[in-house]
Structure formats: C-alpha cells, structure tokens
Simulated assay, not measured.
Amino acid sequence: MTRAWILPSLMVLCGVVAATGPVLRGEAGLAVAYALVFLVLAGVCSPLVFPRSVGEEEARRRSAADGRPVVYWRPGCTYCLRLRLRLGRRAHRLHWVNIWRDPAGAAAVRAVNDGDETVPTVFVAGRPHTNPDPRWVRELL
C-alpha cells in the first residue's frame, strides 16, 4: 500500500523544494504557483484519481453479473492514468482492480501477459486486452 504513495509524496517534496527558492527571494506568487503545480501533479499520480478498487474475485463476480469490463491497474502507471482520464466520468462504470493491493489480481495479469505485470489489462467478457486504446474501451461503455 505504501508504494502507491511514493510518487505523489515525491511530487509534494519536489514542490516544496521548488517553492523554497522563490520564497527566499521574496517571490511569493511564484512560490505558490510552483507549489500548486506540484500538488496537482501529486494528485494526478495518486490512487485518489481512480475509482475505488475491488478485489479480483469480486470484480470478476460483478463483471459476470453486469457484463462490465474489469480493469487491472496500478498507481503511477502512465498508461493507466491515460485510460482513466480519457474515460472521464464513464470510468466508474468499470470494475477496477489495483494489482499492488490484490495479489490475485496481479497473478491474473501475469497469467495473460507472459509473466509480466503489464497494465492496464482490461478483461471484456473474460478475454484480456493489454493496454487497449481508450477510445475502444469508451465505446464498450
């Protein structure tokens, strides 16, 4: 769980370091701008941007019941972030599994990606699609 927050924490730390110089020079506006930019970056890189994750078993059960795709992801993955941002509000219609929090989810991803934890991996009707085009996933919804 803690490694999901390493990148956002580093972004906040970089923001503090970047804002320190302008503060010491008396440029408060520039310091605030730096701090805000890095806080936004930290927020985007955090798990808070993604819908609430469920376990792998629960996601498969829900998918079988409602037919919605299951997305396996991990924090800090730029491709996962790209998919999430391009889906917009529709992202909540999918079932999301954080492979760093769910060992069964990580095992499912490794099983279909030759032992690699390549994400995002989207299961549609039981068939895996590794790093699919966000437009295609959006059309499924």
Rank of each mutant, 00 (worst) to 15 (best):
Leu81Cys: 08
Ala106Ser: 09
Arg86Ser: 07
Trp100Arg: 10
Arg93Leu: 03
His95Val: 02
Arg89Leu: 05
Leu87Thr: 10
Asp102Tyr: 02
Gly115Tyr: 11
Asp116Val: 10
Val122Gly: 07
Pro120Cys: 06
Asn98Ser: 01
Gly88Pro: 08
Val124Trp: 13
Arg89Thr: 09
Leu87Asn: 11
Trp96Arg: 03
Asp114Met: 00
Arg86Gln: 14
Ile99Phe: 02
Asn113Phe: 01
Gly105Asn: 09
Glu117His: 06
Asp116Glu: 15
Arg84Met: 09
Ala107His: 05
Arg93Asn: 01
Arg86Glu: 15
Asp102Trp: 05
Leu83Tyr: 00
Glu117Lys: 05
Gly115Asp: 14
Arg82Met: 06
Arg90Cys: 02
Asp116Met: 10
Ala104Asp: 14
Thr121Cys: 09
Val122Ala: 06
Leu94Met: 11
Leu81Gln: 15
Val119Thr: 15
Pro103Asn: 12
Ala125Trp: 13
Ala108Val: 11
Pro103His: 10
Ala108Asp: 14
Arg84Val: 02
Gly105Met: 08
Val124Gln: 14
Asn113Thr: 15
Arg101Leu: 08
His95Lys: 00
Val97Pro: 04
Ala104Ser: 13
Trp96Glu: 08
Pro120Val: 08
Leu87Trp: 10
Val109Gln: 04
Ala125Thr: 14
Val112Phe: 01
Val122Trp: 07
Ala104Thr: 14
Leu81Ala: 12
Gly105Trp: 05
Ala106Pro: 01
Arg86Trp: 07
Arg93Val: 00
Ala104Pro: 10
Gly88Glu: 11
Val124Asp: 13
Arg82Ile: 00
Arg84His: 11
Phe123Ser: 11
Leu81Met: 15
Leu94Phe: 13
Gly88Ala: 05
Leu85Cys: 08
Thr118Asn: 03
Ala108Asn: 12
Pro103Trp: 04
Leu81Ser: 13
Ala107Asp: 12
Leu83Phe: 00
Val124Phe: 11
Ala106Lys: 10
Thr121Asn: 12
Phe123Lys: 13
Ala107Ser: 07
Ala104Met: 08
Ala111Tyr: 10
Val119Gly: 05
Leu85Trp: 11
Arg90Thr: 05
Thr121Arg: 08
Arg93Pro: 02
Glu117Ala: 07
His92Val: 11
Arg90His: 06
Ala125His: 15
Phe123Thr: 13
Val109Ile: 01
Gly105Lys: 13
Val109His: 03
Gly115Arg: 12
Trp100Gly: 07
Asn113Met: 05
Ala91Ile: 04
Val119Glu: 12
Ala111Lys: 13
Gly105Ile: 06
Leu87Val: 04
